[in-house]
Design a protein around this nucleic acid. Sequence first.
DNA 1: GTAAAAGGTATTGTATGCGATTATCCAACA
DNA 2: TGTTGGATAATCGCATACAATACCTTTTAC
Lengths: 235, 235
Amino acid sequence: MSEPRTPGLRAQSVYRALRRAIIEQALKPGMKLPEDSIGEQLGVSRTLVREAFNRLSVEGLVELKPNKGASVAYPTLEEARDVFEVRRGLERLVAENLAGRLTPAQAAELEEHVRQEEKAHGQDGPESIRLSGEFHIKLAEMTGNALLLRYVQESSSRCSLILAIYGRPHSSECAVSEHRQLIDALRAGDAAKAAQLMDHHLQSVVTRALLSPRTEPDLRDALSRYALSEGLTPP
Amino acid sequence: MSEPRTPGLRAQSVYRALRRAIIEQALKPGMKLPEDSIGEQLGVSRTLVREAFNRLSVEGLVELKPNKGASVAYPTLEEARDVFEVRRGLERLVAENLAGRLTPAQAAELEEHVRQEEKAHGQDGPESIRLSGEFHIKLAEMTGNALLLRYVQESSSRCSLILAIYGRPHSSECAVSEHRQLIDALRAGDAAKAAQLMDHHLQSVVTRALLSPRTEPDLRDALSRYALSEGLTPP
DNA sequence: GTAAAAGGTATTGTATGCGATTATCCAACA
DNA sequence: TGTTGGATAATCGCATACAATACCTTTTAC
C-alpha cells in the first residue's frame, strides 16, 4: 500500500488530480487554492503542488497572483469568446486534416462513440458532458498531430470551465446529430464541408450555451468575480 | 543595486532568460541543462530553475525526462511538420480575424515594421530573423485575442528551434514582399485572400527552409539525436 | 583484452525551513 | 454602530537539506 515510488509520477498525479477536479467542478471557478491544505489533502509537499499550479496556470485553468497564491480560473466573458474562437479555428484544422484520411477502424470507433453519446443522452448526468467532450478529443488524437491535440485539449478544458460559469444548466452537450454529420463528411473526404460543419457545430454550442448568460441566482456569485479581479476580497 | 525584490518576478526572469537563450541558440538544441549550474549562473536556486523548466517544457522548448533532467528540445522532423501545420492554422485565424478590422494606426505600425525588415534585409544578422518573427507576433497581438497570441508565440518559438536544426543557414526570414501583400489584403478587408496569403506565406517558409534538411556537418551532431532518443549516451 | 561489478560522485526528486507578505481578528475610538 | 489600528495567524517565495537515482571510474574476473 505504498505511494507511487516512481519519481516524477507523483508530481504528475497531483497535476492530473487538480485538473480533473477543476474540470469536473469539484473545485469551483474562483475558489482559492492554498498550497498547504491541498498538499496535505493529496499527501504531498507544497513543492509538488506549486509545480502543478504552474502547469495549470500555463493552461489557463488556475490563476496565479503574486503573493496571493492560486485560485481556480474565472474567465471573463471576453476571455471566453477568445477561447471559443481559437477552439473553432483549431478544430476546423482537425476536420480538414482528417477529411478523407479516416481509416475504417477510426470511423467505426467514432460511430461507436456517437452511439454511446446517444445512449447517455437521456440521463444527462456528467456522463453525457464527458462523452461529447471526448468526441472532439478523439478526433484531435486521430490527426496524429501531438501539438494540435494538446491545444485542442487545452482549449477544450477551458471551455468546460467557461460553460460551468456561463452555460445554461444542461446545455453543454453537443448535438449528437451534428457529430454524425461530421463523421459522414470526414469519411466522404469533403474537407471544406467537414470544416464548415465543425465550425457551425462549435458555433451553435456557443450560441446555445453561452450567448445568454444565465441570470445569476446569487448576488454574491455575481459580484465576486468583479471583486476578485479588482483585488478585493468578498466574505 | 539589489536584485528584483518583487516576488514571482525572479522566477519569470529565469524563464525569460532561458527562453531567449534557447531561441537565440545560445543554448543549442539537445544541450543538457543541469539545474544547479544554470541556477548558479543565474544567481538563483534550483527551485526557480525547475519552475522555468516546467513552463518551458509545456511550451515544447525543453524536454524533461524523469530522473535525467532537462535538455533543450530537439524536435524530430515529424514534430516539425506538426508545429508548422498548427502554426499555419493559427495564423490563418489571425488573418481572418484581422481582415477589415485593422485601424489606420495599426496598418501604419505594420508598414513601418516591414520597412525596418527591408532595411535589415541586407545584413542578415540575427536582426533580420528577429524582425520577421516579430511581424507575426504583432499581427497576433492586434487580434486582441490573448489565447491566440499565446499559441502563435509558442508555435513561433518552436519554429525558431526547428529552423535552427533543420533550416538552411540564412533562410529563416520571411519574404518581405509577402508581408506587404498581406497587409494590403487585411486593409482591403478581404478575409479569404488574407488567409490564403498567410497560408501560402508560411507554406513557402517551410519549403524554402525545411524541406531540404541541410547536410549535417558533424557526424556526432547527426547521430546524437538518435542516440539520445534511444537512451544511449554519446561521448 | 573485454566485460561485468563495485564504489564514489554528480544530479535529480521531494520535503522542509525561514523570512517576507498578506489575511484575519479583536479592541479602541469616533 | 461602524470603522480604524494593530497584533496575530495564515500563506507565499525561495533557498536549502536529504534521499534516491543515474553516471562515471576503477577494479576484478574470465
